[in-house]
């Protein structure tokens, strides 16, 4: 599903964000990627969604070689991958409904399909009664649930969550992790980037540790360790 071969990303001459990373994630897996701040976790996410380009190596997602992806195909790739960000990245002038619908609108879905699917997905994340609210009228946990709904609405095969609980309290964190667990149970490959020790230890899923841009540990039902 996701395969990185000898991937390096260098921002400046002083040091590299990722250095010769080899990684394979199979379809349906739930993988936690942990590491200290500045270890290269977010760079890895940016490479997966083609927000950044690797300096060397090869990144394959399904049938895509995204190290050679033409610029015009980047939107198509992003419609195949759901992404959850720590800072939510919701459109502030759009309502909950419109934010979720936007992910389908960019893909050219019909009006009827959007009207049918969007309310269902918003219901799944428990915000059925807040569809007309704007992001600023929601709590952090609710905003993150909107982001999850937006990333799920086009049924991606891969969901990448970059510190999804970084801005949340423990109750909201648990709710979000439960939702992510259920999404994975339905067959979506899940890549969770986090430095939340409790979350990782509770999940007991595959744990990959990154340190100084390199993978230092890869455990099947692992625990958080740096």
């Amino acid at each position: 599903m996701i395969k990185l071969t000898n991937v390096s990303k260098i921002y400046d001459k002083k040091g590299s964000a990722l250095n010769g990373v080899d990684l394979q994630i199979d379809a349906g897996e739930f993988v936690c990627i942990v590491g200290q701040s500045g270890s290269g976790k977010t760079t890895l996410v940016k490479l997966l969604i083609a927000e950044e380009k690797a300096n060397s190596g090869k990144i394959e997602i399904g049938d895509w070689d995204i190290t050679r992806i033409p610029r015009r195909d980047v939107p198509l790739l992003r419609r195949q991958i759901g992404v959850i960000f720590q800072d939510f990245k919701l459109l502030p002038k759009k309502t909950v409904y419109e934010n979720v619908a936007f992910a389908l609108q960019v893909a050219g879905e019909t009006f009827g399909r959007i009207r049918e699917v969007v309310p269902k997905v918003i219901d799944i994340v428990g915000l059925g009664d807040k569809m007309d609210r704007y992001p600023t009228q929601l709590s952090g946990g609710e905003q993150q649930r909107v982001v999850i709904a937006r990333s799920l609405v086009h049924r991606p095969k891969i969901l990448v969550a970059d510190e999804p609980t970084g801005n949340l309290d423990s109750i909201n964190t648990q709710e979000i992790i439960d939702i992510l667990g259920k999404i994975n149970e339905f067959g979506t490959t899940l890549v969770l980037v986090t430095h939340n020790k409790e979350v990782v230890n509770q999940l007991r899923k595959r744990v990959i540790t990154i340190h100084n841009g390199q993978i230092t540990s890869d455990q099947k039902e692992g625990k958080y360790k740096l």
Partner: peptide, 12 residues
């Protein structure tokens, strides 16, 4: 920021 978000969601 909105332009960036739209791009990340897959807008051309």
């Amino acid at each position: 920021q909105e332009i960036g978000i739209k791009k990340l969601v897959g807008a051309t």
